[in-house]
Design a protein around this nucleic acid. Structure first.
Lengths: 226, 226
DNA sequence: CTCTTATGGTGTCGGCCTGACACTTATGGT
DNA sequence: ACCATAAGTGTCAGGCCGACACCATAAGAG
């Protein structure tokens, strides 16, 4: 590291906030009021304050825009192409967050204003800046994590049925999964615990499960070499 | 993304440069001449110039400090704790690079000055700033990538024997691998091609292999769900 | 009360991948 | 020629995975 000079690069965080609503994977977008890209949709973001860590900044943006706290948040990638912002040099540290719908305030779940909305993550509107790249990268990472780890619970309420869990996986991966194999694997992974409650919705009641907090989230992945 | 104000956060890149020398995984460190941490060892790094992308900055630092070009380089993580630098707020985008020893200029392979040196990656000296964290994270990522992908070739010369490849893997993973299983797997992955050359070093000659450039580097990983 | 309907829940079998394991082959040096 | 040393090769057993079909249970309709 050489010594310092002033270079005036602005630093922001952008947060890709995912949730499941109406059996679809949604992402929170904000409509831009000012130039550049006025009127277009963009990821929630903001400048990093001088005394706050990057993750703190991301949590602040997450809370300001979605009202959610204590949710899964992970650094995604840092985007710094010199002209990704036409005004000045802006480098952004992108995060992605998984929020279960029941942790969102009601006015955020169904925003009244047209300035903010939950969009289908796989069919977003045109986005400002390089946010389409950021979203695409976040989706890739989410699918990847879902395939190798147990992070899907973060999008569900405290307790859930195995069918609900499977539907969440199918929604995000966009493919059908075999019910028996899904159950076998997810139970063998040892990351769920039964509750003694059931969910009865007109038909045979389904057992509710809960995520085992003590279980390491990075569960069963396979190694190329032993 | 809200609108801009001046916040004077400095932005740097730090590059964890790995190579294999003397049958050990080494990392390039630079001795700091100035405060803070004067006299301590640190990762090569530098400020991001106003008109260059993050990856360009990382390649520039990589070239300035090691003389290597056209090598494997990947963004690692962005470290931004508010007081990771005691002078001022500095956020650093860390990269890691894999360089085969034969692409290093001779004076870099065996530096004369005591201001720069290749240190055992698993037994580094005390490091300035939070560079020990960055190095630990890079090692974890390197092991991970090695287990799941075929990235190990980047540390070897253009052609190499399977035993050399296996030794590289054993050095980095710090465990012994079975010769027959290693060969079976690495050949089944289809990322190598035979050359018709052999390496004869006093005993039975070993066939030389080459990395198939057309092969996708992200090769055979396993999915948790089909 | 019974029947219908819709979802919840369960087991097996074959194929493939993986990990454990030992001997023969080829060369250079003595 | 003999020896030392590294290169190179195959099998077998266990576990994991993917494919596949039927019974159980509750609510609601008649």
């Amino acid at each position: 590291m050489s010594e310092c000079f002033d270079q005036r690069i602005a630093l922001t965080v952008d947060v890709v906030i995912f949730t499941l609503l109406d059996n679809a994977l949604k992402v929170l977008l904000i409509r831009r009021r000012r130039e550049p890209f006025a009127g277009m949709w963009a990821l929630p973001g903001g400048f990093v304050h001088p005394q706050e860590s990057l993750e703190d900044a991301a949590r602040r943006v997450l809370y300001e825009e979605s009202g959610a706290t204590d949710v899964y948040l992970e650094q995604l990638y840092t985007f710094g192409h010199p002209d990704r912002d036409p005004r000045q040099r802006v480098v952004t540290v992108a995060y992605f967050a998984l929020v279960s719908a029941d942790r969102l305030p009601l006015d955020v779940q169904s925003p009244r204003s047209s300035e903010r909305g939950w969009w289908p993550a796989y069919e977003p509107p045109p986005l400002a800046f390089d946010h389409a790249d950021i979203l695409a990268y976040a989706l890739q990472r989410l699918r990847y994590k879902l395939e190798y780890t147990a992070v899907g619970f973060q999008l569900l309420p405290e307790t859930f049925t195995l069918t609900e869990l499977q539907m969440a996986y199918e929604t995000i991966l966009r493919e059908q999964l075999d019910k028996r194999n899904f159950r076998r694997k997810v139970l063998a992974a040892g990351i769920l615990e039964e509750t003694d409650a059931f969910k009865s919705g007109g038909h045979r009641p389904a057992r509710l499960y809960r995520f085992r907090r003590e279980a390491t989230v990075e569960s069963t992945a396979r190694r190329l070499f032993p």
